[in-house]
Design a protein around this nucleic acid. Structure first.
Lengths: 252, 252
DNA sequence: CCGGAAAACTGACAGAGATCAGTGAATCGG
DNA sequence: CCGATTCACTGATCTCTGTCAGTTTTCCGG
């Protein structure tokens, strides 16, 4: 793997080899990079004409609010991830997007994005793949909440975050920095904060992993994987389709 | 709304006005229509090169299997819906697709599909919108399983199915035919079949809706909507984006 | 460095839903 | 049309997770 200037390039670069010009194009998307404080939503559920961003630094979550006052976090975004890509396509945002830490993000002009894709089909394919990986993660969360118990589900989330962070150079098999509070974790896992606390304690006592002071230490990777029934495939299987994009079909 | 020859055309036609030629193109996609028995998977999770279909008749579910033997149904597909569209993009199928009844479906050649989109951008946009609606439904299921109790969740699913069936002319506000068993419902709702039974009884006793002998009768639509916190928006908001597809931006 | 606020943590108790172990009702292929 | 299989349905019990009501620890701005 090449040294990458941005997590976004690192992420795409881990699936297709990026040429010098392509790296420059990706860099150009970061032109309007700005800093945003934690807690103030970047995208608002139900609002039209919401912006899209590429996240350069910090953590973000996308969530849905319910009438009863509860919220369900659908996914977390980490550096290199798109924010609100869906709302570019479907006009109205289905979810809100909130920074969980101070973040740096680049505002994306939809038209610029389309132009980039038109001129660099491989990048378009890579982003499309990334979007479809995001969908796969949502499905995985659905499966987890529907069919895994609290312990398995929590282990699964911690592993998933670890895998994603490792991809952009922000984590290893041994652990990663994680700014999520137990309340936030609870909103993502469909649990109460109290129970998240109990579950984290159990993971610690079982010698599987330790989540403390903003740091996740994975003590027994294989044990965790087994407990969570964690299947790495949904995160990094084939990568984007090249046929018809990189080269015409008959050339294969 | 015009009289439509297929549920697929009915679905797309409810969001963009379809011209005569466009209707013919949609019809041509149904060329390889075939019948498939209940229970034999059409798409297999984890397998590469899986086919895609447009469902013409019958009910289908897409699901994920877990190591423990449980399964989580991610979504149901009804006539007019795409099957395995995602696997066309990402090479490997993330979910299996199983017919719940005898079905009729049209096998789709990915290349044909791309050609159709290239020549009929409005149809491409409409299908893209439909795909994004599918994603919104998955998110809605996630929110439901994470934050709604069994009664609300079940009510929500029954309402969602009703709305979708109504769109393609297979249901009304008053009810619809529904071939789902309580076991299947349980796999979709993240509940046990026993509890689904109890929940359905309660919905019946509360005078909200009656699910019996393959028929859902909605007795108190507004009551159900309120109980489920059902927000129709995620199913039928704006429809696809026209800008940049139907006409260049400056023409607006 | 200090005080206040947020986050982490804990025990006691309650409740939603799972599991177990069945009995009736419907459906269907032969 | 009949036996078998699937599906619908029920009560009793158990357990996982939520709720309540705190205390302690950590963090952060002034």
């Amino acid at each position: 793997m090449v040294m990458h200037s941005s997590p976004f390039a690192a992420k795409l670069g881990s699936y297709i080899d990026l040429s010098e010009p392509e790296l420059l194009v990706l860099e150009s998307l970061h032109a309007r990079r700005k800093c945003y404080p934690a807690g103030r939503d970047l995208v608002l559920q139900g609002q039209p004409e919401q912006p899209a961003y590429i996240l350069a630094e910090g953590w973000v979550c996308s969530y849905r609010l319910l009438a009863g006052g509860g919220r369900q976090i659908v996914d977390f975004q980490i550096p290199g991830d798109f924010l609100g890509l869906r709302s570019v396509l479907s006009r109205t945002a289905g979810q809100s997007v909130e920074p969980l830490t101070k973040v740096q993000a680049s505002l994306i002009n939809p038209q610029d994005l389309m132009d980039v894709f038109a001129r660099n089909p491989r990048l378009g394919a890579a982003v499309l793949w990334a979007a479809s990986r995001d969908d796969a993660m949502v499905v995985e969360h659905l499966v987890g909440i529907g069919r895994r118990n609290a312990l398995e589900r929590t282990a699964h989330l911690l592993l998933e975050l670890g895998a994603r962070l490792t991809l952009v150079g922000l984590g290893t098999k041994a652990g990663y920095d994680c700014p999520l509070s137990q309340y936030v974790l609870a909103d993502a896992l469909g649990l109460s904060a109290v129970h998240v606390n109990r579950v984290l304690r159990e993971l610690r006592e079982e010698g599987l992993c330790t989540f403390r002071n903003g740091r996740v230490d994975i003590n027994d990777f294989d044990g965790l994987v087994q407990l969570a029934d964690f299947d790495h495939d949904y995160l990094d299987h084939d990568g984007p389709l090249y046929q018809g994009v990189q080269a015409p079909r008959f050339a294969a």
